[in-house]
């Protein structure tokens, strides 16, 4: 079980405000704006309650730890903490052996780099690696600067 893994528990306790909601028993005005259709779902919210990333169902601990980086990265991106977002996405993108999250992480790492620098060249440097390493991924198909 993911939440019984010590690494997962430590990461959640150190980096997030953990919130548990019952889709049908908690107040509708809390749950409905979150747009959850399937349970369980893990959401990453900013301090205004906006959903910045959503992940349906359970994941094994290693994949869940990557998800924590991605979700935190998306919140950082929307808070204009571009340096922090870059670090989180890059960490997942460069993990060895490659994680299934890597193509997505490369994509958003490039976006975070661009938002920090406004440089198409720097964006292209990241996305080029994505296209070379994961050419058949959906994320490589999206990563076109031409």
């Amino acid at each position: 079980m993911t939440f019984s893994d010590e690494r997962v528990r430590a990461a959640i306790a150190e980096r997030f405000v953990p919130l548990s909601l019952d889709l049908f028993r908690d107040p509708r005005e809390w749950v409905r704006p979150l747009g959850v259709l399937w349970t369980p779902t893990v959401l990453f919210l900013d301090c205004r309650g906006a959903v910045r990333y959503a992940s349906p169902d359970f994941l094994p601990p290693d994949l869940f730890l990557d998800l924590l980086d991605l979700g935190e990265g998306h919140v950082a991106l929307h808070w204009a903490r571009f340096g922090e977002a870059q670090q989180l996405f890059r960490r997942v993108a460069q993990r060895e052996p490659a994680t299934p999250w890597a193509p997505e992480a490369f994509y958003w790492w490039g976006v975070a780099v661009y938002l920090a620098t406004r440089s198409r060249d720097e964006l292209e440097q990241v996305w080029r690696i994505l296209r070379e390493r994961f050419p058949d991924s959906l994320w490589a198909a999206r990563a076109r600067t031409d």
Binding site: A13, D22, T41
Partner: peptide, 30 residues
């Protein structure tokens, strides 16, 4: 130790105060 809050407004207030994201686990009983 993870202490799961059960109250959305309190979680958002804490997130604002601590400048941390909220990790919301949405489930259903049964």
């Amino acid at each position: 130790m993870v202490v799961w809050l059960r109250d959305l407004p309190s979680a958002l207030e804490q997130a604002q105060h601590e400048r941390r994201p909220v990790l919301a686990y949405v489930w259903k009983d049964g």
